[in-house]
């Protein structure tokens, strides 16, 4: 610890102006779409199509009116979509994380029969494209009467083989066997050892897996698009896709819908951006796990 901080202090502060300017250009590139959406969601249809500056505000800045229209359009369906997305992200994310933490710990810390075989099947499953499963899962669920229900979206998002792999690697390296044995000698049962000794040590990886699975469910498009037909069950991704299809199909008659889509896109990204910024400290440590070893 002291060694590395000593080396850091000895390193001269480096400025590199050309590199920073280059970086500045990249930042502009990555921010342009956000800027465009933030500016244009303040406009009404004439402001949007009137041929004014597309990268700056129109004369009328009307966020409040647009927000009101967004959340009252079609009986407030947009708010429902946001709530649905939240439900799918939380249920899928938390469920997938619990399963992944348990399985990763089990694979790392118990030498049970069939362990090597099942782990190699798991590694093979990392290569299976998730979308290849959508059509047969739809067929199976439709046989069980589960399509067009929330379970059709939540159940498949419980499956996160990469999360198990990540937890396995982390538990193997961050949870020493000696500590577990010490807890057992002190009379703690296996479950208590897991919950009170191993789990706290795995926390950085747990947060990372939770965030990755929640983001994966929030971003999901193909699966809910295939599974759901009732638009009151849609997550926000499928809902905005639907609106965009309607707006593009009859370009002239739906100019007012475009400003709702733009603001809808802006509103839908705010929760995730907040989540990423506030949880930054936690996921940064976990992201390196999969790559380094």
């Amino acid at each position: 610890m002291t060694g590395s901080s000593g080396a850091g202090a000895r390193r001269r502060p480096q400025r590199h102006l050309p590199l920073q300017i280059f970086l500045g250009f990249l930042v502009v590139y990555f921010l342009v779409p956000f800027w465009w959406v933030a500016v244009n969601s303040s406009k009404d249809a004439p402001g949007l199509f009137g041929g004014g500056n597309t990268l700056w505000f129109a004369d009328r800045v009307d966020y409040f009116g647009n927000l009101q229209r967004l959340f009252t359009y079609d009986g407030g369906i947009y708010g429902r979509w946001i709530l649905n997305s939240t439900l799918y992200a939380f249920a899928g994310g938390i469920g997938a994380t619990i399963l992944a933490v348990m399985a990763g710990y089990g694979f790392a810390k118990y030498r049970f029969a069939g362990r090597r075989f099942s782990f190699s099947i798991l590694l093979g499953a990392l290569m299976v494209p998730a979308t290849a499963l959508v059509i047969p899962t739809f067929m199976m669920f439709s046989g069980l009467g589960l399509t067009n229900t929330i379970w059709a979206v939540i159940l498949p998002s419980l499956l996160n083989p990469f999360g198990v792999y990540l937890m396995h690697v982390y538990a193997r390296d961050a949870v020493p066997d000696e500590i577990l044995d010490a807890a057992r000698v002190d009379g703690a049962g296996e479950v208590r050892t897991f919950l009170q000794v191993a789990f706290p040590l795995m926390r950085p990886a747990v947060v990372t897996v939770l965030l990755l699975s929640a983001v994966a469910s929030w971003n999901n498009y193909f699966l809910p698009l295939a599974m759901l037909s009732d638009n009151r069950l849609f997550p926000v991704t499928v809902g905005l896709g639907l609106w965009q299809g309607i707006a593009s199909a009859n370009n002239a008659g739906s100019t007012s819908l475009w400003s709702l889509i733009i603001l809808g896109a802006l509103v839908s990204v705010v929760p995730l951006i907040i989540a990423f910024f506030t949880l930054q400290r936690h996921w940064r440590g976990g992201l390196s796990v999969g790559g380094l070893r």
């Binding site: 619990i98 399963l99 992944a100 348990m102 399985a103 710990y105 089990g106 694979f107 118990y110 030498r111 049970f112 029969a113 362990r115 099942s118 798991l122 499953a125 299976v128 290849a132 499963l133 047969p136 899962t137 199976m140 159940l155 498949p156 419980l158 499956l159 083989p161 198990v164 296996e190 897991f194």
Partner: peptide, 25 residues
Amino acid sequence: REHLMGWLFVGPFGIVFLALLIAPL
């Protein structure tokens, strides 16, 4: 005991894995 505990921890994921990955495939 180790076999049992190992499968107890891996089992729940294993069921989901069989039902939602192996079976659809």
